[in-house]
């Protein structure tokens, strides 16, 4: 059976494969970028407020910092309590063009031992968890091999 692929949050990312991108919004008046997307009003206090337009974020950035989750996180994070807990790495990535730091999980198999601050990573599609009908999709950060 093929599970339906459903984003864990609507409107935060789009595309497949090499075209996968995080989606933010950008203020038409002051060019401030927001992720997670801001669809109400521009949050720059010095901006008169402009239309907020959907904009893909840069696919690559550099590691600002990283850590991991050695213990099973509580709900609403979804895990199978019958399986042993497998730690995953969390990476905070600085996107140069947007001057923003975005947190995300590392692709499976990457551990903190593989990471350094300053290393280049790229955003790729990933699966957060699966249930009977649905594969809940998310974004992952993956080292490009570009080095620090």
């Amino acid at each position: 059976m093929t599970r339906a692929r459903t984003p864990v949050v609507d409107g935060w990312f789009t595309g497949d494969g090499d075209d996968f991108r995080l989606l933010g919004t950008r203020c038409a008046a002051c060019a401030s970028v927001f992720f997670p997307r801001e669809d109400g009003h521009c949050r720059n206090p010095g901006c008169p407020g402009g239309d907020l337009e959907e904009v893909p974020l840069s696919p690559r950035g550099r590691i600002w910092s990283y850590t991991d989750s050695r213990y099973r996180p509580p709900s609403p994070y979804v895990t199978n309590p019958e399986l042993p807990w497998e730690p995953y790495a969390l990476i905070a990535v600085e996107l140069a063009a947007e001057r923003i730091v975005v947190l995300g999980q590392a692709v499976p198999g990457i551990t903190v031992a593989d990471l350094t601050v300053g290393m280049e990573v790229e955003v790729v599609p990933g699966v957060l968890h699966e249930d009977a009908e649905t594969a809940w999709t998310t974004w992952h950060w993956r080292p490009t091999g570009g080095g620090a």
Partner: peptide, 28 residues
């Protein structure tokens, strides 16, 4: 709710944020 989302989407507990700050201090 950003607090609900960080658990739902990332499993990011409070200690993971402390870990990020600590690693950043080590690097910088």
């Amino acid at each position: 709710d950003p607090d609900w989302l960080r658990f739902r989407v990332l499993g990011a507990t409070n200690p993971t944020y402390f870990g990020l700050y600590a690693r950043r201090r080590m690097a910088v």
